[in-house]
Simulated assay, not measured.
Amino acid sequence: MSAAAYHPHDHQGCINTALQQAATLCAEQGVRLTPIRKRVLELVWQNHKPMGAYDLLPALAADGFNSAPPTVYRALDFLLDLGLVHRLASLNAFIGCSHPGHEHESCFLICKHCGKAHEMNVEPWFTALTDAAKAQGFQVEHQLTEVVGICPLCSAEPDRESRDES
Rank of each mutant, 00 (worst) to 15 (best):
K134V: 06
R160Q: 11
F108H: 02
N66L: 11
G64I: 04
A18P: 05
D77Y: 06
S2L: 15
G52K: 11
Q139M: 11
C114N: 05
R87P: 03
C26Y: 06
A89Y: 13
V72I: 10
A5M: 12
F78Y: 04
G149E: 01
A133V: 06
V148G: 00
P152D: 10
L82T: 04
Q136T: 11
A53F: 00
I36S: 01
W45I: 05
E161A: 09
A68K: 15
Y73Q: 12
A132Q: 09
S2R: 15
A4V: 10
H104G: 07
I150V: 15
D63T: 01
H11W: 13
Q21I: 04
A135G: 09
P158G: 07
L76F: 01
H7E: 12
R163Q: 05
K38W: 03
H86C: 06
T34E: 07
E161W: 07
Q21A: 06
Y73S: 12
N121E: 05
F94P: 04
L109R: 09
S90Q: 05
D63H: 06
C14P: 08
G137R: 03
Y73G: 02
L109T: 04
F138A: 07
E141H: 12
P35T: 09
V122M: 12
D81H: 12
E28S: 13
T17E: 14
R74K: 10
Q136N: 12
Q139T: 15
L84P: 02
P69Y: 11
I150Y: 07
A22C: 07
D164M: 13
L43G: 04
N47Q: 07
W125V: 15
N92Q: 15
E123D: 14
L109Q: 08
H142T: 11
V122C: 08
P50L: 00
